[in-house]
Structure formats: C-alpha cells, structure tokens
Amino acid sequence: MSFLNIQGLSKQWADTRVVEDINFEICEGEFIALLGPSGCGKSTTLKMIAGLETPTAGNVILNGQNITNRTPGQRQLSMVFQSYALFPHLSVKENIVFGLKARKVPVNERNKRLRHAVELVNLGDQINKKPSELSGGQCQRVALARAIVSQAPLCLMDEPLSNLDTKLRNEMRTEIRALQKQLGLTVLYVTHDQVEAMSMADRIILLNAGRIEQMGSPQALYNEPASSFVARFIGHPPMSLMTRDKHLIGIRPEHITLCKSGYSEGIATHNPNKNPNNNASVIHCDYHGADTLISVDFQGSALMLSLQGHHLFQAGHPLAITWESQHEHYFSAKTGLRTANL
C-alpha cells in the first residue's frame, strides 16, 4: 500500500504552468529524490505537498487521508529548508523544540525527544548556542534535529545540502541516509544534483519542465534512460549523443575505448574509409587525476570519452576509438523517447 500518493498535481501561475499533472506513489520508509534542473517545478511540487503552496488541481493523499486542503501544520510532516530556516533569535535547543512547544507537547516528552535527536545528529554541546555561532554543517544538523523531534512520518527536504562545501556535503549525504534508515523515515528529497540523487535515493523522480520524465531506481535511470533528456542529465560526464537518420545514438564516455595498437574489430562498421588508426580527432582534454576526459570529433559529432590516467593530447590529434554495440542507446530524434536497439 502506498504511503504518499500524489494524484494529478498541477500548479499554474497566471499563464505559466509550473507543474503539470504529476502522479507518483511512495512506500513507507522509502528515500525518494525529486531531481531536475532549476525551474523544473520540483520545489513547487514539494511545497504543494507541504501545504505551503495551493495546487491548481490534484490531490495529496498521505497514509490514506486526503490532506490537500489541510494547513501545513495539520499534515504531520516535517521539512528541512535549503536556508535551514533556523530562527536566529532562538537557541539551538529552542529551535529544535519550537514545534513541540507550538503543539503543546508535555515538557517531559519534549525533553526526551530533544535529548534523543541531539544525540542522533551529534549536537550535544551546542544546544545553548545561537545559530549565528554555528557552522553551516551544524546548522543543517539543527534543522535535521528539528525534523526528527516532530516524529512526523514524512520528511520533506528542499536542497538541504546545496549551501555546504563539497567535502561537508559528502559527509552529510552519508549521515542523512544513515539517519533515514535508522529511523525508518520516509523522505522526499529535492535536489538538482544528480550525484546526491544517485548516491542517496532508493528511487529517483526526474522532472523536466513541470512533468515527470522518468521514475525509477538510480540504476534504471542510468542504464535505461527513458529519453534523451534523461540520458543527457544522468551520469557524469553525461552520455554523448549522435544523430543518425531518425535516431539519436547515445554512448556513455566510460564505454568508449582506444583501439589497441591502432587495431579494433568494431571499427570497420563505423569507418567507411577503412582507416583503422584515425577515425576521430581530439577537441579538448580535461585532466581529472584518476582519469582524463577527452572530447573528440567523431564523424561530425562531438563524443566524450574518459581514459584512466594522464593523457593530454593536442587539439586535432588523431585517435582511433571504438565501443561495443551493446552499450549503444537509441532514441527517436523526433520525440526523444527511447526506442529498441536496431
């Protein structure tokens, strides 16, 4: 049975349709990432679920109850904001128990939950400080603790890590995921960062221009992108696409290899000139440490390949490249939708 059920959710500002007919279901305990480029409607969707925006159409059903018309406070959910939204004039402790006080939870219970949450997020000696005395990571922990003490079964997170530096972000990713599993939280996590979505989520809902582009596990989105948009969006570096007749052929950079000593079996099919050694020329190289990203011109299309180790070629340097046909993805050039392999 689904825990959260979103039915035909839409939002329209004047003539602009920000969110169009979104439907999905979430099971209890799942970690779902709502992924998409900025302006795709993911935050608006989250706010409609939270009750901070009124949907133009559609229903939000939580635990079998239609909560579409309830106030945010009545919905039994918690939320973590990108800005943390910590009240600057209240101490850490007061910030965490703010909601419990507003809901008139008895003092004993309040203190018990506070101790528990503070322990979970590791804030022990900070609880009497003001938010301005904390680092960004600590602020995020306070925001998490605030969500935890509410004991709401659904937790909404709106880009919670985007204000942190990369190192901290990686740490917090692991921590949030661990917490979610430990507490059995159901999390709906909005992000524009595919790495976050891929590494944390059980399932990803990829939004584009107010619509769901694809919904599924990270592997599904990576291995079988439902459209050329998904193909371009997921993966780092992204999939390269070439136009062939009425199709787009996609190939991931890690699947392209150099021919050993200028020789490869696969090459003949792609090189009508039967010149096995030089079927592509280098445009640009990016050294990343463990590997080097090389963009090449291959028959008029730009392809990306990644090679282990340090390889810096001059622009125009000829290369012989190849890949296995099983790694090719086919999309309709017209609709962008995935088609069967030829």
């Binding site: 009750g51 901070l52 939204a85 600057p88 507003a102």
Partner: peptide, 28 residues
C-alpha cells in the same frame, strides 16, 4: 525571510504563536 514563516507553519505554529515567538523578536 519567508522561510521562517514557512518553517513555523510546518511546525504547526498558530498565527499568534508565530507573531509572538518569531515576528516580534525579529522586529526587536
């Protein structure tokens, strides 16, 4: 910031509580 009011709303804070515990202190 509107975030403060949204956070308070999610925490189930009434209008009066929001005014007393958030708006007024921030206006001090």
């Amino acid at each position: 910031s509107r975030d403060f009011y949204q956070a308070a709303a999610i925490e189930g804070s009434s209008r009066w509580t929001t005014l007393r515990r958030i708006t007024l202190p921030l206006l001090m």
